[in-house]
Amino acid sequence: MNWLMVVAGALVGAPLRYLTDHAVQGRHDTGFPWGTFTVNLVACTVLGFLTGAATATTVPQPLQHLIGPGLCATLSTYSTFSYETLRLAETGAKFFAAANVVVSVVAGLGAAYLGTAVAHAVFQS
């Protein structure tokens, strides 16, 4: 049953990543990978919220599988982040490459923390 929930979440997460990435990147005329940055932050926030909710209250395991390894794992993309960072460095945009690494890691951790804090505030009130 859990694997079906992961598949169901992935069926939503993968196309959502693709569509969001292209929509966001299409609004920016820069080499910085804003689309990938956006989907990764959203996934970090949602996964942080799920984690906070699961520690503050009972979240059914099928729902955890649907959202965590299903939706969030396919919404976020470490491989694309890595590829885009290398592409930036190879094309001479070393500042953007370094900024992508630092800002993505710091913002991703901050988003996960924020999601967890919001869930605790919501479910422990």
Rank of each mutant, 00 (worst) to 15 (best):
M1Y: 05
W3C: 09
M5W: 14
M5R: 07
V6D: 08
V7I: 14
V7W: 08
V7F: 12
A8Q: 08
A8S: 10
A8H: 06
G9V: 10
A10R: 07
A10N: 10
A10L: 08
A10E: 09
L11W: 14
L11D: 11
G13M: 14
A14M: 12
L16K: 12
R17S: 10
R17C: 11
Y18L: 14
D21S: 15
D21M: 14
H22T: 12
H22W: 02
H22G: 07
A23G: 10
A23E: 15
Q25P: 05
Q25F: 04
D29C: 12
D29W: 11
F32P: 10
F32M: 13
W34V: 14
W34H: 15
T36K: 08
F37Q: 03
V39E: 10
L41H: 05
L41M: 14
V42P: 10
V42A: 15
C44R: 07
C44D: 06
V46I: 09
L47T: 04
F49V: 01
F49E: 03
F49H: 02
T51A: 08
G52S: 05
T55N: 03
A56L: 02
T57F: 00
V59F: 00
P60A: 01
P60N: 00
Q61A: 00
P62E: 03
P62G: 04
P62Q: 03
L63A: 01
L63K: 00
Q64N: 00
Q64G: 00
H65Y: 11
H65M: 10
L66A: 08
L66C: 04
I67L: 09
G68I: 03
G68N: 02
P69T: 15
A73Y: 07
T74G: 07
S76P: 03
S76T: 05
T77Q: 13
Y78W: 15
S79W: 05
F81Q: 11
F81T: 05
S82G: 13
Y83D: 07
E84P: 03
T85A: 04
T85C: 07
R87I: 07
R87F: 08
R87V: 10
L88Q: 09
A89W: 14
E90G: 12
E90F: 07
T91Q: 15
G92Y: 09
F96Q: 15
F96A: 15
F96Y: 14
A97C: 11
A99I: 00
V101W: 01
V103W: 01
V103C: 05
V103D: 02
S104V: 05
V105Q: 00
V105T: 01
V105M: 02
G108V: 02
G110P: 06
G110V: 08
G110Y: 06
A111Q: 05
A111L: 06
A112P: 06
Y113N: 03
L114G: 11
L114K: 01
G115Y: 04
G115V: 07
T116S: 11
V118Y: 00
A121R: 03
Q124M: 13
S125N: 05
S125E: 04
